[in-house]
């Protein structure tokens, strides 16, 4: 469904992606792991067109992402951002229903509010939260609102950027379970970037490890622990010694 072929991207002298090739099959949950600064976020932002690659092809359903109607293309996606990226000036329900209040998917205001409250309930938040502002919520609640916004328009493809960063282990577990449940029940194709191995084991159908600007290893989650790739082995076991240089 999503195919990246030899994607390169540099920022000045910093060559972040050096030929990333990856295929995410329809309905699968692909988790991209890798150290900080290895280009995980750049990879998913390239798919969305937020970052323009220097070279290579990115296709969704066989179609180059920069071709065709951009609004229709983006309407297929939902995204949970690392920090939530909720709009401070809007109450929670308008954040969740943002897409339903304007543009091609516009619904009547009452209907959009109902859908927003329904999605908030789906992520475990009470209806009373709907009229609060993002600044009045805890980090975990903001993550849930971000998740509700990502699924509000029932997208076919959902991206999760570091969904558990900054959360305590229990809340991280709750978010991981929610993502797994929602992905399964919606049948969506997903890409998640994380370095939280608990997230990987809960969310992933397939895992890809990004290192040094290329996909170092890719395969089903069931084969991850037994893989003989030294980079992958060092990363998933969190060892300081190995081929990946650790700054001490």
């Amino acid at each position: 469904m999503i195919t990246l072929t030899h994607v390169h991207k540099s920022f000045g002298d910093n060559h972040v992606l050096r030929g990333v090739s990856l295929h995410v099959p329809k309905g699968q949950s692909m988790v991209i792991i890798g150290g900080s600064g290895t280009g995980k976020s750049v990879t998913i932002k390239s798919v969305l067109g937020l970052v323009e690659p220097d070279s290579g092809r990115i296709e969704v359903d066989g179609r180059e992402v920069h071709e065709g109607d951009r609004d229709a293309f983006l309407a297929r996606f939902g995204m949970l951002f690392q920090g939530g990226a909720l709009f401070d000036s809007l109450p929670v329900w308008q954040n969740v229903a943002f897409r339903l209040l304007r543009g091609a998917l516009k619904r009547p205001k009452e209907e959009a509010r109902e859908i927003a409250i329904d999605k908030l309930r789906r992520v475990g938040l009470r209806a009373a939260v709907a009229d609060l502002f993002p600044s009045e919520l805890s980090g975990g609640m903001q993550k849930r609102v971000g998740l509700a916004r990502a699924i509000a328009a029932d997208p076919e493809i959902i991206f999760f950027d570091e969904p558990t960063t900054g959360l305590d282990p229990i809340m991280a577990g709750v978010i991981n379970e929610l993502i797994r449940e929602i992905v399964t029940e919606m049948g969506a194709t997903t890409m998640t970037i994380t370095h939280d191995m608990t997230s990987v084991r809960t969310i992933a159908d397939r895992v890809a490890m990004l290192h040094d600007g290329v996909i170092q290893w890719e395969g089903p989650i069931s084969e991850m622990d037994g893989a003989d790739d030294p980079y992958l082995a060092q990363f998933i076991r969190g060892r300081a010694d190995g081929p990946i240089e650790a700054v001490r």
Partner: peptide, 16 residues
């Protein structure tokens, strides 16, 4: 602030 907290990117992903 919207830019550094990725709210501008969020707008784009919400077709705005």
């Amino acid at each position: 602030t919207m830019k550094v907290t990725e709210q501008i990117d969020a707008l784009v992903t919400l077709s705005t």
